[in-house]
């Protein structure tokens, strides 16, 4: 039995390697010569082992609880019918998923095709030899198909022209959401507004947002003086 509290502190220090060299020598000498001290140390160690064991047993109990839960589940049901149900459910789910994916894939391909067939690539602003414009560099890049360069250059401008061509550039880079954001920046008084509106509808279609696309197209088609009212109506019919 452990009688002296001072010994417990000493044992702890020994186990934690906290004794000085002198203390360690003294400890080991005492273990070798003092049977009672040695016995107490053995008891201390056995308690430590017992603590470890206790928590091992606790973990084992938890695992046994899992056994009970798993076994009671399987006992409550006929294993054969469960197996069948699982197979049937899995098969049905697989068929459903495949069908949905096929439908979704098929429809998205159609919409995407419709969008890209309706999309007209902007020719870009003219670059004149006689005069220099801030848009010369981005427009050259755009016309040459260097869309990454065009995008980085256009981002430096803050105008409806820049936003419109930036959106067109991003469309070519398949950055549809960013293109949509830029088209939304173009206000009603801009000369690009109507074109931007129609292109917004096409990008929404490209993104499979058919509801959003229909709304914009409807709005365009209802304005008889809108530059793209006929195109919008035709696209709505195709959808």
């Amino acid at each position: 039995m452990l009688r002296e509290e001072t010994n417990i502190t000493l044992f702890e220090k020994y186990r934690n390697n906290e004794l000085t060299e002198t203390e360690l020598n003294s400890f080991e000498t005492r273990i070798a010569s003092d049977n009672l001290f040695k016995e107490e140390f053995e008891v201390y160690k056995s308690i430590e082992e017992g603590i470890q064991n206790h928590f091992r047993v606790e973990l084992k109990k938890e695992l046994k609880n899992i056994d009970d839960r798993l076994d009671s589940k399987s006992n409550n049901n006929n294993p054969l019918s469960i197996k069948k149900i699982i197979i049937w459910t899995a098969s049905a789910a697989a068929i459903l998923i495949v069908s949905l994916l096929a439908i979704q894939n098929y429809s998205s391909i159609n919409y995407q095709e419709l969008a890209s067939n309706s999309w007209e690539k902007e020719p870009g602003l003219p670059v004149k030899m006689s005069s220099k414009s801030d848009f010369d560099k981005p427009m050259n890049a755009y016309k040459l198909g260097d869309y990454l360069l065009a995008e980085s250059l256009l981002k430096k401008f803050d105008s409806d022209t820049a936003a419109f061509y930036l959106a067109n550039t991003q469309y070519e880079l398949n950055k549809y959401s960013e293109a949509l954001d830029n088209l939304s920046l173009i206000e009603e008084d801009s000369r690009y507004y109507q074109n931007a509106q129609y292109k917004k509808a096409l990008i929404l279609l490209r993104l499979d947002n058919t509801t959003g696309c229909r709304e914009v197209l409807k709005e365009i088609s209802e304005q008889s003086n809108h530059q793209y009212s006929q195109e919008a109506l035709s696209l709505l019919n195709k959808m």
Binding site: M1, V43, S46, I47, G50, N53, H54, V57
Partner: peptide, 8 residues
């Protein structure tokens, strides 16, 4: 000296 049950 101490059984596992006692320690637990």
């Amino acid at each position: 000296v101490y059984s596992q049950e006692q320690i637990s």
